[in-house]
Nucleic acid binder design. Structure first.
Length: 418
DNA sequence: TGACGTCAAGATCCG
DNA sequence: CGGATCTTGACGTCA
């Protein structure tokens, strides 16, 4: 099993993807944005390698307007060095990547111009993966599309468009059940007809079930039969429902125990799992460390560095417990570590504890900050304690200082992210 | 016509 | 002027 995350990495400086609006999309601007985004992509690939994350989805926005305005621009030749460096790193680390056009790429639309734009979009995605000279195990995930009041006709239209797609697209294309229209049984039927692999999404199936009596394991087993040797290991999407947002909305973070329960509910070899979650790489590292066969003390200690001020802010007792836990270098403490972290972060905000964490982090700047910065910090801090400002406001200042004074340790911390 | 989802750009407001 | 906060954009479907 490989575990991965989609598109963006949180708490990773220099990994921000950039774009522009159509109004300002000159060829020069698009070419330069593509180059900046390739550098950000390479940062994320490096991060994935260092953090043992073997699965990753490349954002469709990697080339802004890549399937329309930028399609004829030489972004590939202009940045070929960057692309080949990325390609080498993906292949040498045995990373599996994918791309996933969103809900607006619709192959089975009754509108021919919509279909043509969808084909152009898929061509762009296939071209990007081809430029990295990645084989057909690196997939493009797509939803089936709309039903337009007639499921059979809509499915037939998909089959007809699919038959005329070039092999450069079909060798990568896999179909996912969605949360409102095509459920997993319908996707499976279509996949068997056209000969494409089906990718199972557990949350989509929960809100748009084909048969509520059937388990995740049941559907994953049926999907497995659609994967050929050339497709590589079976892939799935995994996410958890956000506790208060609308049905189908992804949770902020993956809760470790339900995730492990899910893994244990699946018999045999586990499929690859793309996590769809707001905190991205942060949950991916957690799930990777908790499913590793050999414990990785070094990575766990790196994680402690990223979590420590957030834990201190909510629960000094858990902070001490985690320090003690990591002193024991033998055994696998990953699960207890994350259970404790999750419990600590679930504690309500407390001004005294939050102040303690703020002062710890301010300690990185107390020597180098200008008098004006020190005054600003004190004003915000005291304002927070009097209830005039939210905690976020004080932390934003500390984050800006981390950037200005290049405090890499703090920039990698989750203290400033949601 | 607006909701849906997503994230950064772009616009505007504030001290 | 910089920083914070709001609105817009880009896409297609469907009520």
């Amino acid at each position: 099993m490989r575990i991965g995350y989609a598109c963006l990495a949180v708490a990773l400086d220099g990994a921000q993807l950039k774009t522009c609006t159509l109004k300002t999309a000159t060829p020069e601007r698009l070419l330069s944005l593509a180059g900046e985004n390739f550098a950000a992509l390479e940062r994320m690939i490096d991060y994935n390698i260092a953090n043992h994350i073997p699965l990753y989805r490349i954002s469709s926005d990697i080339v802004p307007f890549g399937s329309s305005r930028a399609s004829a621009l030489p972004w590939d030749s202009l940045h070929s060095g960057s692309l080949s460096s990325i390609a080498t790193k993906i292949k040498q680390s045995n990373m599996r990547v994918s791309m996933h056009p969103g809900q607006y790429t619709v192959l089975n639309s009754p509108d021919a111009s919509v279909v043509q734009r969808a084909i152009d979009d898929l061509s762009y995605h296939a071209t990007f993966l081809d430029l990295l000279s990645l084989d057909a195990t690196h997939k493009i995930i797509l939803h089936v599309g709309g039903k337009y009041g007639d499921s059979t006709t809509a499915r037939k239209r998909f089959e007809s468009v699919y038959r005329d797609l070039p092999a450069s697209i079909t060798k990568r294309l896999i179909l996912e059940n969605d949360g409102t229209v095509f459920n997993i049984a319908e996707v499976l039927e279509l996949c068997h007809t056209i000969g494409a692999p089906a990718i199972y999404d557990n949350l989509h199936n929960a809100i748009n079930p084909a048969d509520a009596a059937k388990s995740d394991a049941y559907w994953i087993a049926l999907c497995r039969a659609t994967w050929r040797d050339t497709d590589g290991a079976q892939k799935t999407h995994y996410s958890q429902q956000h506790p208060v947002k609308t049905r189908g909305a992804h949770s902020d973070s993956i809760a470790i125990e339900p995730f492990l329960d899910y893994c244990h509910s699946l018999p045999g070899e586990l499929p690859d799992m793309m996590l769809e979650v707001k905190d991205k790489n942060r949950s991916a590292v957690k799930c990777v460390l908790c499913t590793m066969e050999k414990p990785n003390q070094h990575l766990l200690e790196t994680e402690w560095g990223r979590y420590k001020y957030s834990v201190l802010e909510r629960s000094p007792a858990d902070y001490q417990a985690l320090r003690a836990l990591l002193k024991d270098k033998a055994g696998n403490h990953a699960l207890v570590f994350y259970q404790t972290v999750e419990r600590a972060l679930a504690q309500p905000e407390d001004k005294g504890r939050a102040l303690n964490a703020l002062e710890h982090v301010w300690g990185y700047f107390s020597d180098c900050a200008t008098p004006a910065e020190a005054r600003k910090y004190q004003t915000l801090r005291d304002g927070y304690l009097r209830g005039e400002y939210p905690l976020e406001k004080v932390k934003r200042l500390l984050y800006r200082l981390s950037l200005n004074y290049k405090q890499d340790y703090l920039l990698g911390s989750y203290y400033f992210t949601v």
